[in-house]
Amino acid sequence: MQTMLQDESGHKHEHLWRRKNQVNPVGSVHGDILNIEIREGRKIMVQHVTPEPDHCVSNGLFQAIKSTKSKSNIPPKCSYGCSSENIVIDQIVTDSQTVNHAGNASSASSTNPVIFFIHGVGGSAKLWKHQVEYFYQENYEIVVPDLLGHGLSSAPKHKKAYTFSELSEDMLVLFDAFAKEENILIGHSYGSSFCVKLAHERSNQVSKVILISGGGPQSLKPQPCQIFCLPAFILSCIKPMIVNGFIKRAFKDPSQQAKLDKNNSFNASASVLHAMMNGQDWAEGDRNYHAALNTPILLIYGTQDQFIGIDEEHEMIETICDCRMKTVEAGHMVMLEAPYEVNELIDDFINQHPSERVVQRVPTF
């Protein structure tokens, strides 16, 4: 797909990316947080973490981490001073520049796949903090966007900016910019639908897909007569009640979850939530669409999930040719509630030999 983006003078060029407000993460020397005008009027904040320099790999740092699977909170450092501290997005340094990418935005030399993480409604890139840290230590290149209207991305006022077709087009443009020969897609909740769309549209480039709390192989359509049908100004008034209700249902035991995690789990504005919930219109994504996927897929499901039923996950297994499921004792926010289990499930699946793939009969409808 040809991507046409505007430069400062208003002229259009292929793969011309405008980087503004580059973030230098506090307490970390790794990764860039880039504010990219991915399409006209749509600025997406992207956390881009590239693999550790060769000197860190060669000195045995990451081999030791991989063998021990250490859960220590102390960030390891190599003799060159590199640190694997968590990336914190709380400082923005203005650094306007125009970068012309004739090919891909990614320039890292690692042979590992690029891992894309896509969050769901109300979330942000921060929800993937445990996974970013883990797979950074495993020396992967990582791309984590904030969906439009979420996190540090721009939030246009018009509702049509948040339809599934518009948001999925954002993700396709982003994928085309950062993708390499081999790419892994990981989505949570509504983000899983974007991963399915990407796997379908870019099947030759997507090697594996992990869907966390993603639901069944059904078309999407806005639900009638639900709370998000109320006008946005009314939602603004009752948003604290909505957020508290979400937190109580999203986590297996909210009292055991860090306050910051709970705050980040559903933290978009009322107007964005209103537009997102009413923009989930994807008639194309039915069982036949899912059945056409030929990419190995792992489903990760929290056994205490109050939003997604396990029957929906079983329907995915029956529909998709190469699909399997792993369950975790958690709620809907599995990657925050059980990060170590989720990380190892993803890691094992990524490194699974092709001969271990699960191949089922192709369903007919």
Rank of each mutant, 00 (worst) to 15 (best):
residue 280 Q to V: 12
residue 258 A to P: 06
residue 205 Q to G: 07
residue 206 V to N: 09
residue 290 H to K: 03
residue 296 P to E: 07
residue 212 I to Q: 08
residue 301 Y to S: 01
residue 286 D to T: 02
residue 285 G to S: 13
residue 272 V to H: 08
residue 176 D to F: 01
residue 265 S to C: 15
residue 293 L to A: 10
residue 196 V to N: 07
residue 264 N to G: 02
residue 258 A to Y: 08
residue 252 K to I: 01
residue 238 I to V: 15
residue 302 G to I: 01
residue 296 P to D: 09
residue 233 F to S: 12
residue 208 K to E: 05
residue 268 A to Q: 04
residue 266 F to Q: 07
residue 221 K to L: 05
residue 188 H to Q: 14
residue 312 E to W: 01
residue 278 N to H: 10
residue 230 L to R: 12
residue 251 F to K: 08
residue 281 D to Y: 12
residue 292 A to L: 12
residue 187 G to I: 09
residue 217 P to S: 07
residue 306 Q to I: 00
residue 198 L to R: 05
residue 274 H to C: 09
residue 219 S to I: 00
residue 297 I to V: 15
residue 260 L to M: 10
residue 292 A to Q: 14
residue 301 Y to L: 01
residue 277 M to T: 03
residue 215 G to H: 03
residue 220 L to V: 02
residue 199 A to P: 06
residue 282 W to P: 00
residue 202 R to V: 07
residue 299 L to N: 12
residue 290 H to M: 12
residue 230 L to H: 07
residue 210 I to W: 04
residue 225 C to V: 06
residue 203 S to M: 10
residue 306 Q to M: 12
residue 247 I to L: 12
residue 309 G to I: 01
residue 200 H to G: 03
residue 214 G to I: 12
residue 263 N to R: 13
residue 226 Q to G: 13
residue 274 H to N: 14
residue 316 M to V: 10
residue 266 F to D: 08
residue 190 Y to G: 00
residue 181 E to M: 06
residue 223 Q to W: 04
residue 250 A to F: 10
residue 261 D to W: 07
residue 187 G to A: 08
residue 268 A to I: 06
residue 289 Y to V: 10
residue 211 L to K: 04
residue 202 R to N: 09
residue 178 F to P: 04
residue 182 E to G: 00
residue 209 V to D: 08
residue 216 G to C: 03
residue 292 A to D: 13
residue 253 D to S: 13
residue 245 G to L: 10
residue 231 P to K: 12
residue 273 L to R: 08
residue 277 M to H: 13
residue 202 R to W: 07
residue 179 A to K: 15
residue 249 R to G: 04
residue 283 A to W: 03
residue 189 S to G: 07
residue 299 L to R: 04
residue 233 F to Q: 09
residue 209 V to E: 05
residue 301 Y to P: 02
residue 241 M to R: 05
residue 281 D to S: 14
residue 293 L to R: 10
residue 186 I to T: 09
residue 238 I to A: 01
residue 182 E to L: 04
residue 206 V to D: 09
residue 188 H to P: 05
residue 239 K to Q: 14
residue 294 N to E: 15
residue 249 R to I: 11
residue 201 E to L: 13
residue 291 A to P: 03
residue 316 M to H: 04
residue 255 S to F: 03
residue 261 D to R: 02
residue 260 L to A: 15
residue 259 K to G: 01
residue 294 N to R: 15
residue 219 S to E: 05
residue 304 Q to M: 11
residue 243 V to N: 08
residue 213 S to K: 05
residue 295 T to H: 09
residue 247 I to G: 06
residue 187 G to Q: 07
residue 214 G to F: 08
residue 229 C to Y: 00
